[in-house]
Amino acid sequence: MREQSEGIVNLVVDNLNEQTIQLDPYALEPIQEYLAGISISRARHGFSPRETSFYVLSLKNAILDVQEESAGSDIAALYESTRALNRLFDELSTNTFETFIKGREDVILRQTDEISEISTPVIRVWDQILAMPLIGTLDSARTQTVMENLLQSIVDTGSEIAILDISGVPAVDSLVAQHLIKTVSATRLMGAECIISGIRPEIAQTVVQLGIDLSQVVTKATLASALKHAFGMLKLEVRKTQPPKPFMI
């Protein structure tokens, strides 16, 4: 950080001396570059915009001190150079701010990519029963992966039932619905059954109003009820164990 600051101060001071405080765009370029680097790295490291602009403005104060010293009693010159310095830093801080925001946006974009890349795990919850929790926005590419993963796991494990849990999906629009329906049909073609669980009340209402027909799909509100349904299909029963009867002769 210190090194960075020294570098930038030197750049600015050199620029001021040589050009008698003219804002030469060529001379300005390295400074902008420098600040851009700093603000991008600050954005990535989660600094607030306030901290970042504070940094730029504190550089200004540092240079002002230097100017004051070297100007001595020449107030007019000091005034001129201060004004020029102000203009310069206005420009610089606007630029820094823009770069900072760009840095943040890049982070966001990368995160969205990463989130959608997180492979969706297939969990074997029981013999012959698979569950796949879906989290986040489903786009075409991701749903394709989901479907392939699920079908492959059905083959690999010889499962009869797959539960797709959409509790973590923020909205089901016609595209997502279409993908879900396709996944269910493909599962059936492989001789297995697919249950969709985790349909929240607001999702249910929206899907109905949108006009999507999920009547051919077995849907459940929770993963627990889907599992119960699956047990029923496999003729399995979950019971509380009876406390052992006292032994009597």
Partner: peptide, 30 residues
């Protein structure tokens, strides 16, 4: 495609800010 996710999140932020309920929020986002 990535813009879709960012945009949807913004719409949600606005809806939350005016105190829209979760059902209407979901309808609007959809």
């Amino acid at each position: 495609e990535q813009d879709v996710i960012l945009f949807r999140n913004r719409v949600k932020e606005f809806a939350v800010r005016i105190g829209m309920g979760v059902v209407n929020q979901t309808k609007l986002i959809t």
